[in-house]
Design a protein around this nucleic acid. Structure first.
Length: 373
RNA sequence: CAUUGCUGGUAUCCAGAG
């Protein structure tokens, strides 16, 4: 049992929930660690449905199981389910509170995060770091800076979070100063710097950073790859992609998106077919390739054959309809048939109506939005 | 002292800014 548990854990960490499940199913006896670890494998691979199912099947649910499921809701379309789950928990420890806080932080809910932080029975450094990240995710740089100075202590993660805050919003000089001030900086920090240069279009600085950094891991390679793809450098991107020491789904989807962006649909399709695994994002990239150029019949065919869809898949289809000649009516019908809508869906309709001169309908979309940005 | 849970860097949809 011990060894099988370790195997499940290993597969979970390697994002192979299928293999983890094979081990789990083959076990003659399972203890609570086996169940928790299996649940966590689904959580880590973003497999909410399977995570829920395992959770429901569990003979007994401990704090770890509750917390793992809570985390799974964080990246789901309605992360507010996480709060419902949190409220249902029979007991909550520090980790559970922190996990709930992280759900708010990752989804940009600064208000909720702040309130929750104040309600917490006790806070530790993880709580402070998470709150700091909530400010950063919400784009509140000054407040993040203030909070950083008010924190009781700083560890590497606190420093990296504040560094990332400056880097991602293009404050290169400030980010550099933070890097000089921090006691140690690791690959995460260097990669954030690289990413910042890439977003500003400073490819030379990005490349120089990549070459200069003490170590490069898979994320750094992916970031360098994205630096080229986001700036329309297909040839450089190809060179990086095929030269990388290893490739994960980020690498593949980044490369795919580059082919699509450059209008090379056939090539994209070939890369797609050659992928070792495909996630929703890979399917979405190809879908967007068809929809963006108005090939709605091919898009529909692809859409119908997708093994999984998320809200982005639906939004891509919607975006395809609104931009073809006289597609607005079809878009309206499609919009009504969607399982959910978010700000992007409504904004797509809003701008489509506005550009077609239907001011009243556009207004209607505007007022149907639960929030505005 | 401890087989599993919480925080930092990279990819796909609309708009805006450059």
């Amino acid at each position: 049992v011990f060894l099988c548990n370790k195997l499940i854990e290993m597969y979970g960490r390697c994002r192979s929930s299928r293999e983890a499940r094979t081990i789990f199913d083959a076990m003659l006896a399972r203890d609570s660690f086996s169940w928790d670890t299996m649940l966590l494998a689904y959580t880590r691979t973003g497999n909410l449905e399977q995570a829920k199912q395992i959770f429901d099947e569990m003979p007994s649910k401990n704090l770890i199981a509750w917390t793992s499921l809570l985390v799974a809701f964080s990246s789901s379309e309605d992360f507010h389910q996480a709060k419902l789950l949190f409220d249902q928990m029979p007991e909550r420890d520090e980790v559970a509170w922190n996990a709930m806080l992280a759900v708010y932080a990752q989804n940009g809910c600064l208000e909720d995060a702040t309130l929750l932080f104040q309600e917490m029975p006790s806070t530790n450094l993880v709580s402070w770091n998470t709150l700091l990240d909530a400010f950063v995710e919400a784009g509140k740089l000054e407040e993040a800076g203030d909070l950083f100075h008010r924190m009781p202590l700083h560890d590497l993660i606190s420093w990296t979070t504040i560094h990332h805050a400056y880097a991602r919003f293009g404050y290169i000089d400030e980010a550099k100063l933070v890097m000089e001030a921090m006691p140690e900086s690791d690959t995460v920090c260097w990669t954030a710097m690289l990413s910042a240069y890439a977003q500003l279009g400073s490819l030379d600085s990005a490349k120089a950073t990549f070459d200069y950094m003490p170590q490069r891991d898979l994320v750094s390679w992916n970031t360098m790859l994205a630096a080229y793809t986001q700036n329309g450098r297909l040839d450089d991107a190809k060179f990086v992609f095929w030269g990388m020491p290893e490739r994960d789904l980020f690498s593949w989807t980044t490369m795919l998106a580059c082919y699509v962006e450059e209008g090379h649909l056939e090539e994209a399709r070939r890369v797609f077919d050659g992928m070792p695994q495909r996630n929703v994002i890979a399917w979405n990239v190809i879908l967007a390739g068809y929809a963006q150029v108005g090939l709605m019949d091919r898009a529909t065919l692809h859409f119908d054959s997708m093994p999984f869809r998320d809200l982005i898949s639906w939004n891509i289809m919607l975006g395809g309809y609104v931009q073809i000649e006289g597609g607005l009516r079809e878009a309206e019908v499609f919009f009504r048939g969607m399982p959910q809508h978010n700000l992007v869906s409504r904004n797509t309709m809003l701008t489509a109506f506005a550009q077609a001169g239907f001011i009243e309908k556009s207004r209607g979309c505007f007022s149907s939005m639960p929030e505005h940005n």
